[in-house]
Nucleic acid binder design. Sequence first.
DNA 1: CTTACATTGCGTTATTACAACACAATGATA
DNA 2: TATCATTGTGTTGTAATAACGCAATGTAAG
Lengths: 256, 256
Amino acid sequence: MNFDKEISDHYLRGHEKYLRNISVDCIIFGFHDNELKVLLLHARYAMLWALPGGFINKAEHMDEAAKRILKERTGLDEIYMQQFHVFSAPERFNKKIHQQFLKNAGVIISESWMFERFITVGYSALVDFSRVQPVADVFSNACQWFNIHDIPEMMLDHRNILNKALENLQAQLNYHPVGYNLLPEKFTMPEIQKLYETILDKKLDRRNFQRKILGTGILKRLNETKKGVAHKAPWYYKFDLRKYQKALKGGMGFEL
Amino acid sequence: MNFDKEISDHYLRGHEKYLRNISVDCIIFGFHDNELKVLLLHARYAMLWALPGGFINKAEHMDEAAKRILKERTGLDEIYMQQFHVFSAPERFNKKIHQQFLKNAGVIISESWMFERFITVGYSALVDFSRVQPVADVFSNACQWFNIHDIPEMMLDHRNILNKALENLQAQLNYHPVGYNLLPEKFTMPEIQKLYETILDKKLDRRNFQRKILGTGILKRLNETKKGVAHKAPWYYKFDLRKYQKALKGGMGFEL
DNA sequence: CTTACATTGCGTTATTACAACACAATGATA
DNA sequence: TATCATTGTGTTGTAATAACGCAATGTAAG
């Protein structure tokens, strides 16, 4: 299917395939260079950045839709993600942006389900930065990571959605383990600590952090230290998947 | 507008007024006789109980829709309520129940937006039991309180939604104050303790509870004790609204 | 080869939070 | 006037937490 056809088909017939007035937006967090990152799309012609989002197939669970959308943008499967909030302000739509987009795409459409108001459900995902291959969709001309402290101007209320996702991530940090999807297979204690510090945006005591995180039992120390570093080499660790899953449900039992 | 007209209008033209495929369901908690209660509707003809719910007007914020629905059932305004989860299983609709309902109402309708699948957003509300005047809607023939431990059979996944709301209420108890909407204006220490015990479904130490709840500063002791009780009369307390509001945002700072 | 030194791993201590329990005060009822 | 279930306040032992000390490590500088 060519570009124009795909676009006009989506605007004219999308409502036959998807639920109306409701969408899903994903906040995809990654961790790289000791910085928390978010994956954003650049909307064609609108000159604004947007959260990766999409719609729910008529016979599809919303969680499945979110996973599908995430897979399309990152190529990743089996990701830990969860809904965190619904955004429903009646003014959260912008017909002009769509018309501008269609005009630039050379498609003439006067009426479309896409021009209507949308309620959107925010999903938060944690992914392994190194395994992601960002892929743009038909509505966007770029897909890239942004530092959480350096977010560009965004469409509609997307900035607000992003902020709420970050708050949610911080709040959950004490009750759910974080890291399995954000860190590489093996990692050092300073690395996982830096992850926690970045999310919480505050410094933690090195020695107390180690005691607590080891106390949960979700980590297994490998018989191997990091090579090629100045000073004392730290041990490598990996997650104990069984205990990690258990902690996902039962909580961590500590506070940072 | 007569009954038949109202029904058929809703099924035939409701989609002109409301967003499609999306609904709101309210879990309305109250406290009475030292028991946690939930307000339920009895769906006409379906012989099943249901959560009070409704739809979102095309130009209405979802939070407003939830408040409107709650006001229609309880008469109450300015209620503390919040969304807690979205339920989106593709099988959560039942055309047969609607057809049975319409048949019994003497209305013949073959196609309707109401027969489609709905994604529903759960809202949790805490209300003052004594001020509620339960009112049934056109689709129901009863509206009454049920003890949380004595819930009747419910429509679709409504029981599941209710369970999730209760879990959510319990989880929030340590971080947000509860009681302003659930208790009368003035109340005693044993009364508010019983409220906490009922929600958490476990006994708490009387003396430690008092120390903690007073430690938050959200209570003000009145210069008045409860009258006409055997044994020592407990003091009356009321909420310090300023500190209560502050704690709603900033948390309570203790664990029960 | 030796030394300096930033970093790691493990340990100690003081403080705070918490649960469990004791006891006197209260005030309606017997 | 005595009884007694209940309330308000206090105490104590234990566990969790924050703050800090110090030796071991191993690269890099001298």
